[in-house]
Amino acid sequence: MLRELWAARALLVILARKDFYVRYRRTVLGVIWAVGVPLVQAVVLAIVFTHVVGIGRTYASSQQAYAVFLYSALVPWNYIANAGPSASTAIVDNVALAGKIYFPRALPVLVTAASAIYPFAIGIVLLLLMSLVVGSGVGVSFLLVIPGAALAVLFVVCVGLCLSALHVYFRDIRYIVMAALSVGFYVTPIIYPLGKLHAHHVLRDLIAIGPGSGPIEIFRAATVGSDSALALAVSACAAWCVAFGGIGFWLQCRRDRVFVDLL
C-alpha cells in the first residue's frame, strides 16, 4: 500500500496542482478567495464579539488583538473545514477516474489534503503580517506554525483515509462531517481561549481533547501565547490521528480493490 502510494507520488503532485488550478481558474480574485474569506470572518467576529456581545475585550487587550487571536485559530480551522469534507468523500467523488484506471484509492484523499495546503500557506503568511502590523509582534515562537500546520494536514489525511473508506458504504458520512464541523466551530477554542475555562476543569479538558484543538492551540502558542491546555490538546489530536489513521490505513489496505464495485 505504502509502496503503491509512493509509486504514485508524481500523480499525487500533478492532481493536486490540477485541483488547485481548476478551483480558482476564471475567478477574478483567484486564490484571494481562499484567504480573504477567513480574514473578513475574523474582522467581523472581532467587531461582533467586542462591541455587540462584548466578550472580546475579556479575552484580549484590544479589538485588534482579539482579531489576531481569532485569525490564528481560523487559519488552521479553515484548512480542516475545507479539506476535511472533500477528503472524506474523495473516493466516491473520483468514481469517473477510478472505474477506468487503477491507482491506490487512498490517493484522492491525499490529493484533496495537499491541494488545500497552498491557501493554507498564504493564510499563514497573512497571519504573520497581521501579528506584525496590528498584533503584538512575533518572535521565534512563530515557527511553531510549521508543526501546527503539519498536525492539521496529518489530521485531515488520517480522518480522510478512514471516512472516505466508510463513505463508500455509508453515504451518511458526508452529512455527519458537515454536522460535526458546524458543531465543531463552537466546541473548539476558536472564539474563546481554553484558559478562560479554568473554572470548569472537566469542560476545559473535554474541549481540549476535541480533535481540532491541537493545531489551533499550537497556532495560538505561535502568535498570542500558549495556553495551559496545550500539551493535552496536542497529545489528544495525535491520539485522534493514530485512531483514525490506523483504522483508515487498515480499511484502505483491505478494501482497496473492492471500492470500485460499490461506487
Binding site: L11, R26, I101
Partner: peptide
Amino acid sequence: PLISVGVGFHPELTGRENVYVNGTIL
C-alpha cells in the same frame, strides 16, 4: 488502458496541461 478517451481531462485546463495530467495518469 485505452478505455474511454480523455480520462481525467478537465475542460478548464489547456490542452498542454491536460496532456501532463492524463499522461501521468497513464
